[in-house]
Structures are given as structure tokens and as C-alpha cells.
């Protein structure tokens, strides 16, 4: 085991080369709905149990199913209302289980990135070849469903190996959502030396982390989103920032939670200098316009 993942170098937030987003926007805003399938009876992974209860784990399974049966349509309607194209973190088995959802997202030109095959299949214990096969199958499933290979990866249930990001880059991916080290995109070292970036996804504003782990009230979550936006928008005058709200239809779309989220979306999209976009568009734009300057600045080892 390593004492540092080795994916990026230390790089002070102050005095970085200025990022500008399209049309002079200060902040790139993206919403990443996780559209997931959890299995009722997944095979055991020796390093992590899928469910806290013996089979059938009704409480855990059924609330996640709520996301697909009920929650998806609620969130999609809201994103339509604010002209936001979702960037879907997809358990790709959902293409087979619930193709209706895939079709609705495809019609809206939402982005699909891979989140593995099932959110109950962990990377732990896979050989490199197994992990490569799993990631590749998930990418090909997306390509078959929507006609385009995914550019981004968020490992299933945030389960990683030491080579997860290397493998994804070798399979043709361009960005990862698995690193939480920055509020701007950054170059990522991958062993193939390919041009590959991290696009800020957020754990702090991830509804499942907020509601399940940190046990935060819905209205406070709405305020946290707005506060986060205010600061990143202000800092975006100095150099463009990225704000992501990762969501789960089984959390944010519950009837007692959606209105706080809606208020926050209304607030953010009501500001002029916001680039409402997708993860892939942020990665592509950054790679084309800012990646090289960032790399040179990091290499220079300049003073903070």
C-alpha cells in the first residue's frame, strides 16, 4: 500500500493561472444525478458488505428503488425547469433494468458517465484484469445505449483500487470524479501519461453524504448549497471555479426535501455569470484551454 495516491501534485490555490469559462462565466455549474441500481442479493465481497441486514435487506434496497420508481421523474422535471442538463453517474445495468429512464435522459442530451455496473459490486479484491473488464463493460454498455463512450468515471460506491484511475484513462476516459482535493479541475497523473483531469465533484454537497452520513436537515442543505455557490462565484472572478451538486433520486427527490433543492437551483441559475454545463464539457474545455498552463505552473513549483 502507498502513503499517497500519487494522482496529483501539491498546488497552492492562490495565484494559479486564471481560468476563464465560456462567455466569461466565473463558475461552471453542473448537477450529477446518480442513477443507480443496487442488487437485492449481490454476491459477497469479502472487504465490504453491501447491506447492513441479512437477505432480504428491505430497508436499504427499497429506498434506493424509490429513486427510480418515484424520484427520477421529480428531479428530471426540476432540472428541465431550470434548463440544467444532468450529468448522470450511471450504474450501467440500469440500461437493461430500466431503459425508460435512459431514454428520457438521452432525449434531453444529458451526459452519461460510468459509475460501474451495479452499485453493489465493489472494486475491492478485483485483479487489474477484472477491474479493467468491469470498467470496459460499463463503458461499452453506455456506448450501446446512447451512441457515445463515456468520458468520466466515478467508481461504484466509491470503491477503488490503486489503479482505478489509470485503467479508466487507458480505456479512453478523460476525467475522474473520484478526487475531492480541489475546487478547480486539475491535471491527474496516470501511468499511461495521457492527458487526463479531475473535475470537481463534491462530497460535501452530495445529498447522500448530507442526508445519510451527516444527517443534515433539508432546509439547511438548501442553505449550504447557496453559501457554497456565493463563495465559489465570488472567487470565480479571480479564476474560474467549478461547483457540482451530486444527487441521488432516492434522497433529494423525497417529498420533504425537493423544495429546498429547488430553491437552491433557482438561486444559482438566477446569476448571470454561471456556465450551466456538464462534467464532460468542463473536462473538454479545461483540457483545451487551461490544462497546459496548469501543468506548467505546477511543474514550476512557484511560491504560494
Amino acid at each position: 500500500m502507498k502513503d499517497d495516491p500519487g494522482y496529483y501534485d501539491y498546488w497552492p490555490y492562490s495565484n494559479r493561472p486564471k481560468i476563464t469559462w465560456p462567455n466569461g462565466a466565473k463558475l461552471a455549474f453542473w448537477v450529477a444525478p446518480n442513477i443507480e441500481f443496487y442488487e437485492l442479493n449481490p454476491p459477497k465481497n469479502p472487504s465490504r458488505a453491501a447491506w447492513p441486514h441479512p437477505y432480504p435487506a428491505v430497508p436499504g434496497y427499497s429506498i434506493r428503488d424509490y429513486g427510480n420508481r418515484v424520484g427520477h421523474m421529480r428531479q428530471m422535471k426540476l432540472l428541465d425547469k431550470y434548463a440544467i442538463r444532468g450529468s448522470i453517474s450511471l450504474s450501467t445495468a440500469l440500461c437493461t433494468h430500466h431503459p425508460e429512464i435512459i431514454e428520457m435522459c438521452r432525449e434531453r442530451d444529458w451526459e452519461f458517465f460510468t459509475h460501474g455496473i451495479y452499485n453493489t459490486r465493489y472494486t475491492y479484491g478485483m485483479t487489474e484484469a477484472q477491474e479493467r473488464a468491469m470498467i470496459l463493460e460499463s463503458m461499452e454498455t453506455i456506448e450501446r445505449a446512447v451512441g457515445k463512450l463515456p468520458a468520466g468515471y466515478l467508481a461504484p460506491a466509491l470503491s477503488h483500487s490503486e489503479v482505478t484511475i489509470d485503467l479508466f484513462a487507458e480505456l479512453g476516459g478523460t476525467y475522474t470524479c473520484d478526487l475531492f482535493h480541489d475546487d478547480q479541475p486539475t491535471p491527474v497523473h496516470v501511468r499511461s501519461g495521457r492527458r487526463f483531469v479531475s473535475v470537481p465533484y463534491s462530497l460535501e454537497l452530495n445529498d447522500t453524504i448530507v442526508y445519510v452520513v451527516n444527517k443534515i436537515e433539508p432546509r439547511r442543505y438548501g442553505r449550504m448549497i447557496k453559501d457554497s455557490f456565493d463563495r465559489l462565484y465570488a472567487e470565480g472572478s479571480t479564476s474560474g471555479t467549478v461547483m457540482c451538486i451530486p444527487t441521488h433520486n432516492y434522497q433529494v427527490s423525497c417529498p420533504h426535501r425537493l423544495s429546498a433543492f429547488e430553491e437552491a437551483l433557482e438561486y444559482i441559475t438566477g446569476h448571470p455569470d454561471v456556465w450551466v454545463t456538464t462534467g464532460r464539457e468542463i473536462a473538454d474545455y479545461y483540457l483545451a484551454h487551461h490544462y497546459d498552463a496548469a501543468l506548467a505552473d505546477i511543474k514550476s513549483g512557484r511560491k504560494a
Binding site: 442479493n41 472487504s47 432480504p56 428503488d65 433494468h97 475491492y124 479484491g125 477484472q130 463493460e137
Partner: peptide, 20 residues
């Protein structure tokens, strides 16, 4: 991590609708 066998990459209930 203890290894997983190749069966961990089989998806027998991957079909239209639910997995039960």
C-alpha cells in the same frame, strides 16, 4: 483485499425490470 473470483463479474439477474 482478499481476491474476488470471476463469478463476481457475472450478473445473472441483469434483465428488464427488477432483479427479483
Amino acid at each position: 483485499h482478499p481476491p474476488v473470483d470471476d463469478g463476481y463479474l457475472d450478473y445473472p439477474a441483469r434483465r428488464y425490470g427488477m432483479d427479483h
